[in-house]
C-alpha cells in the first residue's frame, strides 16, 4: 500500500496511521521501508563537520530536491572516526541552525541615531561600507610612528572574528585586513 506524504507526517508526530495496517501483530517493515524512502526521496547526502566545538564531529546532511531544496535531516556520520555517528544536543540540533525563520534574508542598515533597522540591498551595503572604510583609512593612515619608524598602518579600525570561518576564509580575511593596514586584528582565541 502506498504511503502518502501526509501519512508520513503523521509518523513524525509520534503516532503511526493505521490505514496501512489491518490489525495486530502485523509486520510493519514493508510500509516503513516506503516511509523511509519517502523521507530520503530525492535527497542528496553531503558530509560536513560540526560548527560548534572543536572535537570536529562528522555529520550527514540530507538536502531535498536533489540538493536544490533545503536540508531535511542532519545526523551524525557513522563512518567518522571521532564521533562514530554520535552527536551532543547541539550537533543533533544543527538543522535548526540553518533552517530557521530568524535568519535575516537581506543586509540591514542602521543610520546614526536611528531606532530601527532598514533592509538594504547587498550592492548598496558594499558600496557604503567601502566608502567608510576608505575614508577612515585615508584619514588615519600612519606611515611613520612617533619614533620615525615606518609602520604603514591604521590604528583606528578594528577587526574581531572569526573562529567559525573556514580556514580559507580566515586566511583571506587576515590578508584583507593586513592589506588595509590594520594591526588590531583579534578573534575568539584571545578571549
Amino acid at each position: 500500500m502506498p504511503v502518502s506524504r501526509r501519512t508520513f507526517l503523521k509518523f513524525t508526530a509520534g503516532a503511526v496511521s493505521c490505514s496501512a495496517f489491518t490489525g495486530l501483530g502485523i509486520s510493519l517493515a514493508p510500509a516503513m521501508a516506503q516511509a523511509e524512502i519517502l523521507k530520503f526521496q530525492k535527497t542528496t547526502i553531503t558530509t560536513t563537520v560540526c560548527c560548534y566545538c572543536a572535537v570536529g564531529c562528522g555529520l550527514l546532511v540530507h538536502t531535498a530536491d536533489e540538493g536544490k531544496g533545503r536540508s531535511v535531516n542532519v545526523e551524525g556520520d557513522p563512518d567518522h572516526p571521532v564521533n562514530e555517528g554520535a552527536l551532543c544536543a547541539k550537533g543533533a540540533a544543527m538543522r535548526q541552525m540553518a533552517e530557521n525563520k530568524a535568519r535575516p534574508p537581506k543586509p540591514m542598515y542602521r543610520a546614526a541615531g536611528a531606532k530601527e533597522w532598514k533592509e538594504v540591498e547587498w550592492d548598496w551595503a558594499y558600496a557604503e561600507i567601502a566608502k567608510r572604510v576608505k575614508a577612515e583609512r585615508d584619514a588615519s593612515f600612519t606611515l611613520k610612528n612617533s619614533k620615525g619608524e615606518t609602520v604603514n598602518r591604521t590604528e583606528t579600525m578594528v577587526s574581531l572574528g572569526s573562529a567559525a570561518l573556514d580556514n580559507e576564509e580566515c586566511w583571506s580575511y587576515q590578508a584583507i585586513q593586513r592589506a588595509l593596514g590594520l594591526v588590531h586584528i583579534e578573534h575568539q582565541a584571545r578571549i
Partner: peptide, 19 residues
C-alpha cells in the same frame, strides 16, 4: 481495535491514528 499495534518483526509498540 487498531489504536495500538505491536510490530511483529521488532516488537515495537506503536500508537496509530486510531489512538
Amino acid at each position: 481495535e487498531g489504536a495500538v499495534i505491536q510490530d511483529e518483526a521488532t516488537g515495537a509498540v506503536i500508537f496509530t491514528d486510531k489512538i
